[in-house]
Design a protein around this nucleic acid. Structure first.
Lengths: 245, 245
DNA sequence: AAGAAAAAAATGTGATATCATTTTTGCGAC
DNA sequence: GTCGCAAAAATGATATCACATTTTTTTCTT
Protein backbone atom coordinates (compact mmCIF):
# COMPACT_ATOMS: atom_id res chain seq x y z
CA UNK A 1 0.00 0.00 0.00
CA UNK A 2 2.66 2.42 1.06
CA UNK A 3 4.71 1.47 -1.98
CA UNK A 4 1.80 2.05 -4.27
CA UNK A 5 1.39 5.52 -2.82
CA UNK A 6 5.08 6.22 -3.28
CA UNK A 7 4.86 5.09 -6.88
CA UNK A 8 3.00 8.06 -8.26
CA UNK A 9 4.28 10.42 -5.58
CA UNK A 10 7.46 11.94 -6.87
CA UNK A 11 9.78 13.89 -4.64
CA UNK A 12 8.39 17.11 -6.05
CA UNK A 13 4.91 16.80 -4.63
CA UNK A 14 5.71 14.86 -1.47
CA UNK A 15 5.64 18.17 0.34
CA UNK A 16 4.44 21.66 -0.22
CA UNK A 17 6.53 24.24 1.57
CA UNK A 18 4.52 27.41 2.14
CA UNK A 19 5.99 30.62 0.88
CA UNK A 20 7.14 33.30 3.24
CA UNK A 21 7.16 37.10 3.13
CA UNK A 22 10.55 37.76 1.63
CA UNK A 23 10.76 41.23 3.14
CA UNK A 24 11.98 40.60 6.65
CA UNK A 25 15.00 38.48 5.76
CA UNK A 26 18.44 39.92 5.21
CA UNK A 27 20.21 36.89 3.80
CA UNK A 28 19.16 33.96 1.67
CA UNK A 29 20.40 31.63 4.36
CA UNK A 30 18.04 33.18 6.87
CA UNK A 31 15.18 33.07 4.41
CA UNK A 32 15.77 29.37 3.85
CA UNK A 33 16.02 28.78 7.57
CA UNK A 34 12.79 30.61 8.38
CA UNK A 35 10.90 29.05 5.53
CA UNK A 36 11.97 25.51 6.35
CA UNK A 37 11.39 26.08 10.04
CA UNK A 38 7.91 27.35 9.35
CA UNK A 39 7.20 24.40 7.09
CA UNK A 40 8.34 21.93 9.73
CA UNK A 41 6.33 23.64 12.44
CA UNK A 42 3.22 23.62 10.27
CA UNK A 43 3.69 19.96 9.44
CA UNK A 44 4.06 20.69 5.73
CA UNK A 45 6.82 18.13 5.47
CA UNK A 46 5.71 14.71 6.55
CA UNK A 47 7.99 13.21 9.24
CA UNK A 48 10.08 10.45 7.76
CA UNK A 49 10.18 11.93 4.25
CA UNK A 50 13.58 11.63 2.66
CA UNK A 51 15.08 15.00 1.98
CA UNK A 52 18.25 16.13 0.24
CA UNK A 53 20.06 19.42 0.39
CA UNK A 54 20.08 19.77 -3.34
CA UNK A 55 16.46 18.74 -3.61
CA UNK A 56 15.40 21.40 -1.15
CA UNK A 57 17.67 23.94 -2.82
CA UNK A 58 16.14 23.40 -6.24
CA UNK A 59 12.65 23.35 -4.72
CA UNK A 60 13.33 26.72 -3.12
CA UNK A 61 15.18 27.98 -6.19
CA UNK A 62 18.37 28.55 -4.25
CA UNK A 63 21.89 27.28 -4.47
CA UNK A 64 22.86 24.50 -2.07
CA UNK A 65 25.13 26.69 0.06
CA UNK A 66 22.56 28.73 2.01
CA UNK A 67 20.25 25.72 2.28
CA UNK A 68 23.05 23.72 3.79
CA UNK A 69 23.61 26.38 6.43
CA UNK A 70 19.93 26.57 7.21
CA UNK A 71 19.93 22.82 7.65
CA UNK A 72 22.84 22.93 10.04
CA UNK A 73 20.92 25.33 12.19
CA UNK A 74 17.74 23.28 12.08
CA UNK A 75 19.64 20.15 12.92
CA UNK A 76 21.23 21.92 15.89
CA UNK A 77 17.73 22.67 17.07
CA UNK A 78 16.71 19.04 16.48
CA UNK A 79 14.07 20.08 14.02
CA UNK A 80 15.50 17.55 11.59
CA UNK A 81 17.96 14.69 11.61
CA UNK A 82 21.06 14.48 9.47
CA UNK A 83 21.40 10.75 8.95
CA UNK A 84 24.87 9.36 8.48
CA UNK A 85 24.18 8.39 4.90
CA UNK A 86 23.26 11.27 2.71
CA UNK A 87 19.71 11.78 3.85
CA UNK A 88 17.84 14.24 5.97
CA UNK A 89 14.45 13.78 7.52
CA UNK A 90 12.02 15.14 10.02
CA UNK A 91 12.18 12.70 12.95
CA UNK A 92 9.21 10.37 13.34
CA UNK A 93 7.70 10.66 16.79
CA UNK A 94 7.97 7.75 19.22
CA UNK A 95 5.97 7.23 22.39
CA UNK A 96 9.00 7.38 24.69
CA UNK A 97 10.36 10.50 23.08
CA UNK A 98 6.96 12.14 23.16
CA UNK A 99 6.63 11.61 26.91
CA UNK A 100 10.10 12.99 27.56
CA UNK A 101 9.49 16.04 25.39
CA UNK A 102 6.21 16.78 27.16
CA UNK A 103 7.76 16.41 30.60
CA UNK A 104 10.68 18.56 29.51
CA UNK A 105 8.32 21.17 28.15
CA UNK A 106 6.45 21.26 31.46
CA UNK A 107 9.69 21.55 33.44
CA UNK A 108 11.05 24.32 31.24
CA UNK A 109 7.88 26.32 30.89
CA UNK A 110 6.82 26.19 34.53
CA UNK A 111 10.33 27.26 35.45
CA UNK A 112 10.24 30.11 32.95
CA UNK A 113 6.81 31.24 34.09
CA UNK A 114 7.99 31.33 37.67
CA UNK A 115 11.09 33.31 36.72
CA UNK A 116 8.97 35.74 34.73
CA UNK A 117 6.44 36.36 37.49
CA UNK A 118 8.39 39.14 39.26
CA UNK A 119 8.45 41.12 36.03
CA UNK A 120 4.76 40.82 35.15
CA UNK A 121 3.13 44.21 34.78
CA UNK A 122 -0.42 45.23 33.99
CA UNK A 123 0.70 46.13 30.51
CA UNK A 124 1.95 42.60 29.90
CA UNK A 125 -1.24 41.09 31.29
CA UNK A 126 -3.16 43.30 28.90
CA UNK A 127 -1.08 42.17 25.95
CA UNK A 128 -1.55 38.54 26.91
CA UNK A 129 -5.28 39.05 27.21
CA UNK A 130 -5.37 40.45 23.70
CA UNK A 131 -3.45 37.49 22.33
CA UNK A 132 -5.84 35.17 24.11
CA UNK A 133 -8.82 36.97 22.58
CA UNK A 134 -7.28 36.50 19.15
CA UNK A 135 -6.92 32.80 19.96
CA UNK A 136 -10.60 32.52 20.83
CA UNK A 137 -11.39 33.97 17.44
CA UNK A 138 -9.00 31.60 15.69
CA UNK A 139 -10.64 28.64 17.42
CA UNK A 140 -14.10 29.80 16.44
CA UNK A 141 -13.00 30.07 12.82
CA UNK A 142 -10.96 26.88 12.99
CA UNK A 143 -7.76 28.56 11.79
CA UNK A 144 -5.36 26.02 13.27
CA UNK A 145 -2.14 27.51 11.92
CA UNK A 146 -2.97 30.88 13.41
CA UNK A 147 -3.92 29.19 16.65
CA UNK A 148 -0.53 27.54 16.95
CA UNK A 149 1.30 30.75 16.19
CA UNK A 150 -0.78 32.75 18.64
CA UNK A 151 -0.26 30.13 21.31
CA UNK A 152 3.50 30.42 20.85
CA UNK A 153 3.25 34.18 20.91
CA UNK A 154 1.34 34.01 24.18
CA UNK A 155 3.95 31.85 25.86
CA UNK A 156 6.86 33.76 24.37
CA UNK A 157 5.45 37.02 25.63
CA UNK A 158 4.96 35.60 29.10
CA UNK A 159 8.44 34.13 29.50
CA UNK A 160 9.97 37.09 27.75
CA UNK A 161 8.86 39.35 30.59
CA UNK A 162 12.03 38.17 32.27
CA UNK A 163 14.81 40.54 31.13
CA UNK A 164 17.19 37.62 30.55
CA UNK A 165 14.95 35.04 28.93
CA UNK A 166 17.66 32.45 28.40
CA UNK A 167 15.17 29.61 28.40
CA UNK A 168 13.15 30.76 25.39
CA UNK A 169 15.43 29.29 22.71
CA UNK A 170 15.40 25.95 24.51
CA UNK A 171 11.62 26.01 24.72
CA UNK A 172 11.38 26.86 21.04
CA UNK A 173 13.52 23.87 20.24
CA UNK A 174 11.02 21.66 22.07
CA UNK A 175 8.11 23.29 20.24
CA UNK A 176 9.89 22.61 16.99
CA UNK A 177 10.27 18.96 17.86
CA UNK A 178 6.66 18.56 18.93
CA UNK A 179 5.22 20.65 16.11
CA UNK A 180 5.15 18.20 13.22
CA UNK A 181 3.61 15.48 15.34
CA UNK A 182 0.99 17.78 16.79
CA UNK A 183 -0.05 18.79 13.32
CA UNK A 184 -0.35 15.16 12.32
CA UNK A 185 -2.61 14.59 15.30
CA UNK A 186 -4.77 17.61 14.59
CA UNK A 187 -5.07 16.56 10.96
CA UNK A 188 -5.92 12.93 11.62
CA UNK A 189 -7.97 13.06 14.77
CA UNK A 190 -11.25 14.77 14.03
CA UNK A 191 -12.59 14.72 17.58
CA UNK A 192 -10.01 17.18 18.78
CA UNK A 193 -11.43 19.86 20.98
CA UNK A 194 -9.56 22.70 22.54
CA UNK A 195 -9.67 23.43 26.26
CA UNK A 196 -8.56 26.97 26.86
CA UNK A 197 -6.35 27.02 29.91
CA UNK A 198 -5.03 30.47 29.13
CA UNK A 199 -7.89 31.95 31.16
CA UNK A 200 -6.42 30.20 34.20
CA UNK A 201 -2.96 31.50 33.35
CA UNK A 202 -4.28 35.03 33.04
CA UNK A 203 -6.15 34.77 36.34
CA UNK A 204 -3.00 33.61 38.13
CA UNK A 205 -1.04 36.46 36.58
CA UNK A 206 -3.58 39.05 37.63
CA UNK A 207 -3.39 37.75 41.20
CA UNK A 208 0.41 37.57 40.94
CA UNK A 209 0.02 34.04 42.27
CA UNK A 210 3.12 32.02 41.30
CA UNK A 211 1.83 28.67 42.52
CA UNK A 212 -1.41 29.01 40.59
CA UNK A 213 0.56 30.12 37.54
CA UNK A 214 2.71 27.00 37.58
CA UNK A 215 -0.33 24.77 37.87
CA UNK A 216 -2.07 26.65 35.07
CA UNK A 217 0.92 26.36 32.73
CA UNK A 218 1.21 22.66 33.41
CA UNK A 219 -2.50 22.17 32.74
CA UNK A 220 -2.24 24.17 29.56
CA UNK A 221 0.53 21.97 28.23
CA UNK A 222 -1.15 18.74 29.32
CA UNK A 223 -4.50 19.62 27.81
CA UNK A 224 -2.97 20.78 24.59
CA UNK A 225 -2.47 17.68 22.58
CA UNK A 226 -1.05 15.25 25.05
CA UNK A 227 -3.96 12.91 25.52
CA UNK A 228 -4.79 12.71 21.83
CA UNK A 229 -1.14 12.36 20.94
CA UNK A 230 -0.64 9.47 23.32
CA UNK A 231 -3.66 7.75 21.84
CA UNK A 232 -2.31 8.03 18.31
CA UNK A 233 1.08 6.67 19.33
CA UNK A 234 -0.54 3.71 21.10
CA UNK A 235 -2.59 2.93 18.03
CA UNK A 236 0.47 3.10 15.82
CA UNK A 237 2.37 0.78 18.16
CA UNK A 238 -0.53 -1.68 18.08
CA UNK A 239 -0.71 -1.52 14.30
CA UNK A 240 3.01 -2.14 13.98
CA UNK A 241 2.74 -5.17 16.25
CA UNK A 242 -0.10 -6.90 14.38
CA UNK A 243 0.59 -6.01 10.78
CA UNK A 244 4.38 -6.21 10.88
CA UNK A 245 5.96 -5.20 7.58
CA UNK B 1 45.41 50.71 28.96
CA UNK B 2 43.28 48.31 26.98
CA UNK B 3 44.31 50.08 23.81
CA UNK B 4 47.95 49.77 24.67
CA UNK B 5 47.51 46.04 25.15
CA UNK B 6 45.69 45.79 21.84
CA UNK B 7 48.49 47.67 20.14
CA UNK B 8 51.06 44.91 20.14
CA UNK B 9 48.45 42.14 20.24
CA UNK B 10 47.58 41.28 16.66
CA UNK B 11 44.59 39.14 15.83
CA UNK B 12 46.87 36.19 15.36
CA UNK B 13 47.91 35.80 18.97
CA UNK B 14 44.77 37.10 20.66
CA UNK B 15 43.74 33.50 21.07
CA UNK B 16 45.28 30.10 20.91
CA UNK B 17 42.87 27.42 19.78
CA UNK B 18 44.02 24.02 20.99
CA UNK B 19 44.43 21.32 18.40
CA UNK B 20 42.18 18.34 18.33
CA UNK B 21 42.67 14.67 17.46
CA UNK B 22 41.79 14.68 13.79
CA UNK B 23 40.88 11.01 13.81
CA UNK B 24 37.31 11.00 15.06
CA UNK B 25 35.92 13.56 12.64
CA UNK B 26 34.37 12.66 9.32
CA UNK B 27 34.04 16.08 7.76
CA UNK B 28 36.03 19.29 7.93
CA UNK B 29 32.92 21.11 9.05
CA UNK B 30 32.58 18.80 12.03
CA UNK B 31 36.26 19.15 12.83
CA UNK B 32 35.94 22.92 12.83
CA UNK B 33 32.81 22.72 14.94
CA UNK B 34 34.39 20.43 17.54
CA UNK B 35 37.61 22.36 17.67
CA UNK B 36 35.92 25.73 18.09
CA UNK B 37 33.48 24.29 20.59
CA UNK B 38 36.31 22.86 22.61
CA UNK B 39 38.19 26.13 22.48
CA UNK B 40 35.16 28.07 23.69
CA UNK B 41 34.48 25.60 26.47
CA UNK B 42 38.10 25.75 27.61
CA UNK B 43 38.07 29.52 27.57
CA UNK B 44 40.79 29.67 24.93
CA UNK B 45 39.01 32.51 23.20
CA UNK B 46 38.47 35.47 25.47
CA UNK B 47 34.81 36.58 25.60
CA UNK B 48 34.39 39.81 23.70
CA UNK B 49 37.21 39.15 21.25
CA UNK B 50 36.33 40.18 17.72
CA UNK B 51 36.30 37.19 15.41
CA UNK B 52 35.82 36.84 11.68
CA UNK B 53 34.91 33.81 9.63
CA UNK B 54 37.84 34.26 7.31
CA UNK B 55 40.18 34.91 10.19
CA UNK B 56 39.19 31.70 11.90
CA UNK B 57 39.35 29.84 8.60
CA UNK B 58 42.90 30.92 7.89
CA UNK B 59 43.87 30.28 11.50
CA UNK B 60 42.54 26.74 11.20
CA UNK B 61 43.93 26.38 7.67
CA UNK B 62 40.50 25.73 6.21
CA UNK B 63 38.37 27.37 3.62
CA UNK B 64 35.61 29.68 4.88
CA UNK B 65 32.78 27.35 3.89
CA UNK B 66 33.04 24.68 6.59
CA UNK B 67 33.90 27.32 9.18
CA UNK B 68 30.73 29.19 8.30
CA UNK B 69 28.70 26.06 8.90
CA UNK B 70 30.43 25.36 12.18
CA UNK B 71 29.69 28.90 13.27
CA UNK B 72 26.03 28.58 12.36
CA UNK B 73 25.81 25.57 14.61
CA UNK B 74 27.65 27.25 17.48
CA UNK B 75 25.48 30.30 17.16
CA UNK B 76 22.38 28.09 17.30
CA UNK B 77 23.72 26.71 20.55
CA UNK B 78 24.39 30.25 21.79
CA UNK B 79 28.06 29.53 22.17
CA UNK B 80 28.80 32.67 20.19
CA UNK B 81 26.96 35.69 18.89
CA UNK B 82 26.69 36.71 15.27
CA UNK B 83 26.53 40.46 15.48
CA UNK B 84 24.65 42.30 12.76
CA UNK B 85 27.75 43.98 11.47
CA UNK B 86 30.36 41.55 10.27
CA UNK B 87 31.69 40.43 13.61
CA UNK B 88 31.44 37.36 15.78
CA UNK B 89 32.24 37.11 19.44
CA UNK B 90 31.92 34.98 22.51
CA UNK B 91 29.27 36.70 24.64
CA UNK B 92 30.55 38.53 27.70
CA UNK B 93 28.83 37.33 30.85
CA UNK B 94 26.48 39.61 32.73
CA UNK B 95 25.18 39.19 36.25
CA UNK B 96 21.53 38.86 35.22
CA UNK B 97 22.27 36.33 32.52
CA UNK B 98 24.51 34.37 34.86
CA UNK B 99 21.74 34.03 37.44
CA UNK B 100 19.24 32.91 34.82
CA UNK B 101 21.64 30.38 33.35
CA UNK B 102 22.39 28.90 36.77
CA UNK B 103 18.71 28.65 37.66
CA UNK B 104 17.98 27.13 34.28
CA UNK B 105 20.79 24.66 34.74
CA UNK B 106 19.39 23.62 38.10
CA UNK B 107 15.88 23.26 36.69
CA UNK B 108 17.05 21.21 33.72
CA UNK B 109 19.50 19.00 35.53
CA UNK B 110 17.32 18.18 38.52
CA UNK B 111 14.54 17.33 36.10
CA UNK B 112 16.85 15.13 34.06
CA UNK B 113 18.22 13.40 37.14
CA UNK B 114 14.71 12.64 38.31
CA UNK B 115 13.74 11.29 34.89
CA UNK B 116 16.87 9.14 34.83
CA UNK B 117 16.38 7.64 38.27
CA UNK B 118 14.09 4.77 37.18
CA UNK B 119 16.78 3.57 34.78
CA UNK B 120 19.71 3.65 37.19
CA UNK B 121 21.39 0.26 37.46
CA UNK B 122 24.32 -0.95 39.52
CA UNK B 123 26.41 -0.90 36.37
CA UNK B 124 25.73 2.78 35.86
CA UNK B 125 26.46 3.59 39.50
CA UNK B 126 29.75 1.76 39.09
CA UNK B 127 30.63 3.75 35.96
CA UNK B 128 29.77 7.00 37.72
CA UNK B 129 31.93 6.02 40.69
CA UNK B 130 34.86 5.44 38.36
CA UNK B 131 34.40 8.83 36.72
CA UNK B 132 34.25 10.43 40.16
CA UNK B 133 37.48 8.68 41.16
CA UNK B 134 39.14 10.06 38.07
CA UNK B 135 37.89 13.50 39.08
CA UNK B 136 39.48 13.17 42.51
CA UNK B 137 42.76 12.45 40.80
CA UNK B 138 42.37 15.38 38.46
CA UNK B 139 41.72 17.69 41.41
CA UNK B 140 44.76 16.40 43.27
CA UNK B 141 46.92 17.07 40.22
CA UNK B 142 45.16 20.34 39.46
CA UNK B 143 44.27 19.37 35.88
CA UNK B 144 41.38 21.76 35.47
CA UNK B 145 40.57 20.99 31.83
CA UNK B 146 40.30 17.30 32.59
CA UNK B 147 38.18 18.08 35.62
CA UNK B 148 35.67 20.01 33.51
CA UNK B 149 35.47 17.29 30.94
CA UNK B 150 35.09 14.56 33.55
CA UNK B 151 32.40 16.55 35.31
CA UNK B 152 30.46 16.80 32.09
CA UNK B 153 30.98 13.12 31.44
CA UNK B 154 29.59 12.33 34.89
CA UNK B 155 26.43 14.34 34.36
CA UNK B 156 25.97 13.14 30.79
CA UNK B 157 26.24 9.54 31.89
CA UNK B 158 23.70 10.08 34.64
CA UNK B 159 21.08 11.81 32.52
CA UNK B 160 21.81 9.49 29.62
CA UNK B 161 20.53 6.54 31.66
CA UNK B 162 17.12 7.67 30.46
CA UNK B 163 16.53 5.93 27.11
CA UNK B 164 15.19 9.15 25.57
CA UNK B 165 17.57 11.77 26.93
CA UNK B 166 16.02 14.69 25.08
CA UNK B 167 17.27 17.17 27.66
CA UNK B 168 20.98 16.51 27.19
CA UNK B 169 21.47 18.78 24.17
CA UNK B 170 19.74 21.60 26.00
CA UNK B 171 21.93 21.09 29.04
CA UNK B 172 25.02 21.07 26.88
CA UNK B 173 23.98 24.38 25.42
CA UNK B 174 23.88 25.84 28.93
CA UNK B 175 27.27 24.36 29.74
CA UNK B 176 28.63 25.94 26.60
CA UNK B 177 27.31 29.32 27.64
CA UNK B 178 28.68 29.07 31.15
CA UNK B 179 31.99 27.51 30.13
CA UNK B 180 34.00 30.55 29.03
CA UNK B 181 33.02 32.54 32.09
CA UNK B 182 33.78 29.68 34.47
CA UNK B 183 37.24 29.38 33.00
CA UNK B 184 37.80 33.08 33.45
CA UNK B 185 36.84 32.72 37.09
CA UNK B 186 39.07 29.73 37.67
CA UNK B 187 41.94 31.52 35.99
CA UNK B 188 41.58 34.79 37.84
CA UNK B 189 40.41 33.76 41.27
CA UNK B 190 43.18 31.90 42.98
CA UNK B 191 41.26 31.00 46.11
CA UNK B 192 38.99 28.63 44.26
CA UNK B 193 38.49 25.36 46.02
CA UNK B 194 36.44 22.46 44.86
CA UNK B 195 33.71 20.91 47.00
CA UNK B 196 32.93 17.45 45.72
CA UNK B 197 29.19 16.96 45.82
CA UNK B 198 29.35 13.95 43.57
CA UNK B 199 29.71 11.74 46.63
CA UNK B 200 26.24 12.90 47.68
CA UNK B 201 24.90 12.23 44.21
CA UNK B 202 26.34 8.72 44.25
CA UNK B 203 24.92 8.01 47.71
CA UNK B 204 21.46 9.10 46.58
CA UNK B 205 21.74 6.91 43.50
CA UNK B 206 22.77 3.87 45.53
CA UNK B 207 19.74 4.36 47.76
CA UNK B 208 17.57 5.03 44.70
CA UNK B 209 16.40 8.11 46.58
CA UNK B 210 15.02 10.59 44.07
CA UNK B 211 14.50 13.42 46.54
CA UNK B 212 18.05 13.18 47.85
CA UNK B 213 19.31 13.02 44.27
CA UNK B 214 17.60 16.25 43.32
CA UNK B 215 19.03 18.01 46.35
CA UNK B 216 22.49 16.65 45.64
CA UNK B 217 22.41 17.77 42.00
CA UNK B 218 21.30 21.22 43.01
CA UNK B 219 24.06 21.45 45.62
CA UNK B 220 26.59 20.24 43.08
CA UNK B 221 25.67 23.00 40.64
CA UNK B 222 25.51 25.69 43.32
CA UNK B 223 28.86 24.81 44.81
CA UNK B 224 30.52 24.59 41.45
CA UNK B 225 31.43 28.11 40.58
CA UNK B 226 28.36 30.07 41.48
CA UNK B 227 29.58 31.90 44.55
CA UNK B 228 32.91 32.83 43.05
CA UNK B 229 31.28 33.76 39.76
CA UNK B 230 28.81 36.07 41.45
CA UNK B 231 31.66 37.75 43.29
CA UNK B 232 33.57 38.42 40.09
CA UNK B 233 30.53 39.88 38.38
CA UNK B 234 29.82 42.15 41.33
CA UNK B 235 33.40 43.39 41.29
CA UNK B 236 33.22 44.05 37.56
CA UNK B 237 29.98 45.99 37.99
CA UNK B 238 31.55 48.07 40.72
CA UNK B 239 34.63 48.75 38.62
CA UNK B 240 32.50 49.82 35.67
CA UNK B 241 30.56 52.21 37.88
CA UNK B 242 33.58 53.99 39.37
CA UNK B 243 36.05 54.01 36.51
CA UNK B 244 33.61 54.57 33.68
CA UNK B 245 35.29 54.50 30.30
C1' DA C 1 48.48 68.10 14.41
C1' DA C 2 43.62 66.90 13.38
C1' DG C 3 39.90 65.97 10.85
C1' DA C 4 37.73 64.77 6.37
C1' DA C 5 37.78 62.52 2.14
C1' DA C 6 39.43 58.96 -0.80
C1' DA C 7 41.67 54.69 -1.72
C1' DA C 8 42.74 50.08 -0.39
C1' DA C 9 41.97 45.95 2.01
C1' DA C 10 39.02 42.77 4.23
C1' DT C 11 34.68 40.59 4.93
C1' DG C 12 30.16 38.00 4.46
C1' DT C 13 27.44 35.89 1.24
C1' DG C 14 26.14 32.98 -2.26
C1' DA C 15 26.89 30.57 -6.75
C1' DT C 16 29.63 27.35 -9.10
C1' DA C 17 33.04 23.66 -10.08
C1' DT C 18 35.25 19.49 -8.66
C1' DC C 19 35.73 15.14 -6.55
C1' DA C 20 34.83 11.03 -3.97
C1' DT C 21 31.03 8.37 -2.55
C1' DT C 22 26.44 6.79 -2.65
C1' DT C 23 22.16 5.88 -4.75
C1' DT C 24 19.47 4.80 -8.56
C1' DT C 25 18.73 2.86 -12.93
C1' DG C 26 19.19 -0.33 -16.72
C1' DC C 27 19.99 -4.78 -18.38
C1' DG C 28 20.96 -9.40 -18.87
C1' DA C 29 21.23 -14.19 -16.56
C1' DC C 30 18.64 -17.51 -14.33
C1' DG D 1 9.44 -12.21 -12.60
C1' DT D 2 13.71 -11.57 -9.81
C1' DC D 3 18.20 -11.40 -8.57
C1' DG D 4 22.75 -9.50 -9.35
C1' DC D 5 25.81 -6.37 -11.38
C1' DA D 6 27.58 -2.61 -14.01
C1' DA D 7 26.73 1.96 -15.82
C1' DA D 8 24.77 6.34 -14.96
C1' DA D 9 23.01 9.87 -12.17
C1' DA D 10 22.72 12.23 -7.91
C1' DT D 11 24.60 13.74 -3.68
C1' DG D 12 27.46 15.84 0.11
C1' DA D 13 31.53 18.28 1.03
C1' DT D 14 34.73 21.69 0.14
C1' DA D 15 37.48 25.12 -2.32
C1' DT D 16 37.29 28.93 -5.13
C1' DC D 17 35.38 32.91 -7.40
C1' DA D 18 32.67 37.12 -7.78
C1' DC D 19 30.29 40.85 -5.82
C1' DA D 20 28.44 44.19 -2.74
C1' DT D 21 29.32 46.16 1.60
C1' DT D 22 32.06 47.36 5.41
C1' DT D 23 36.21 48.37 7.69
C1' DT D 24 40.74 50.07 7.74
C1' DT D 25 44.42 52.73 6.00
C1' DT D 26 46.25 56.43 3.51
C1' DT D 27 46.20 60.89 1.69
C1' DC D 28 44.88 65.56 1.44
C1' DT D 29 43.31 69.83 3.40
C1' DT D 30 43.19 73.26 6.82
Amino acid sequence: MQQKAAHFMTKKDAFNIPELPTGDTETVQEYAYLRLRNAIMLGSIEPGTNLTIRGLASYLNLSPTPVREAIRRLSSEHALEVLGNRRLRIPVMEAGRFEELIQLRIALETHSAERAMPYISDVIVQELTEIDDAMDLAIAEYRMEDLTQLNHKFHRRLYGANPYPQSIPLIESIWLQLGPFQRQVVREVKAYYHIDRHKEVLAALRERNATALIVAIENDIRDGIVRTGREKLKQEARAAQTGQS
